[in-house]
């Protein structure tokens, strides 16, 4: 049981059983939200370092709470305040953090594969909190958890992922997780933001939102990075919003019990209207809560068994 690797670098590297173990473990973790005393002794004496090369409030806070509620000592390093600005290499930074006694390094980096480099360098468990456009495994885990919680299953569901697929690590992690658990995935966005050969990852591809929404049980709306427009990837926010923004009218074309997800923070009025994001169909806030539970589960499962740096049994 537990996980086969010392790190969580992506859902790409997990098998179905491992993903389900994490989701199952997150169920009792979520119980802590109902308590007055949000504290478990599980990771007492362990140190967790959040190494963030990209600004992030949500993910960092979520990891921080997950660690703290399990009694780990948590430190945050953001690029602006660290020696990274002085040109220290990632490898060097990783070694320094390990020398400070870190058991977990949670890393967010703007480049794909950066967590892999850290994982190869240190014996601590490395958790990928988003690497470039590659993966954001804990986001996908919380999405899977939310889907399971709301709809009772994942196998056989139709899930549409809408938006900037090309640059989205959330999309890639979701594709891995959903397909491994037996969902049918359709990705949808403007042609300029669909990566080449993405269908080989086991998904349907469409540029038509109507087509993507039809019959979908879940719609996962991605955040649109507004600066992409300047790179000539789409002509204007207005046209993007017109073609791919999720409005009440478009939701009406979905199944009545459709579940709408958004990784946040949303550009309200661009990829999703506030009305839809706050509607009962959407689970935006539930996702945030579930994020902490899923991250607690990941930390627990990476912490156990054997010596650090070895594959957990």
């Amino acid at each position: 049981m537990a996980l086969k690797h010392k790190d969580l670098l992506g859902l790409e590297y997990l098998d179905r059983d491992e993903i389900e173990t994490i989701l199952d473990t997150a169920v009792p973790m979520k119980e802590i939200f109902t308590r007055d005393i949000k504290k478990l002794p599980t990771l007492r004496g362990k140190t967790m370092v959040n190494l963030f090369y990209e600004p992030s409030t949500r993910t960092r806070t979520s990891f921080e709470l997950a660690g703290k509620w399990m009694s780990a000592d948590v430190t945050n390093i953001a690029t602006s305040t660290s020696s990274v600005a002085k040109g220290e290499s990632l490898k060097d930074t990783a070694r320094t953090i390990e020398a400070l006694g870190a058991n977990f390094i949670v890393i967010r980096h703007q480049m794909a594969g950066a967590p892999h480099l850290v994982a190869r360098t240190v014996r601590a468990s490395v958790v990928n909190a988003g690497d470039g456009r590659h993966e954001h495994p804990t986001q996908a885990l919380l999405d899977l958890f939310t889907i399971r919680e709301r709809l009772g299953r994942i196998e056989g569901l139709k899930v549409a992922i809408v938006g900037d697929i090309l640059h989205s690590r959330v999309a890639r992690s979701n594709i891995w997780g959903l397909t491994k658990l037996g969902a049918h995935v359709t990705v949808c966005g403007p042609r300029t933001l669909i990566p080449p050969d993405v269908s080989r990852m086991g998904v349907e591809v469409t540029t038509s939102l109507d087509e993507a929404l039809a019959g979908s049980d879940v719609v996962n709306v991605l955040r649109m990075q507004l600066e992409r427009q300047k790179k000539g990837l789409f002509p204007s926010i207005r046209e993007y919003s017109d073609l791919y923004g999720l409005t009440r009218e478009k939701v009406k074309k979905c199944k009545p019990d459709v579940l709408i997800l958004h990784p946040g923070p949303a550009n309200l009025g661009v990829e999703i209207t506030e009305e839809v994001a706050e509607s009962p169909s959407a689970a935006v806030h539930q996702q945030v809560t579930n994020g902490v539970a899923c991250r607690m589960a990941v930390l627990y499962l990476l912490s156990g068994g054997g010596k650090p740096g070895e594959v957990a049994a």
Partner: peptide, 18 residues
Amino acid sequence: LYRDDLTTIDVQPQVRKT
């Protein structure tokens, strides 16, 4: 989650609901 031997035992126990 309250065990004091989580880092030393070989097989990590499955956490279940209270």
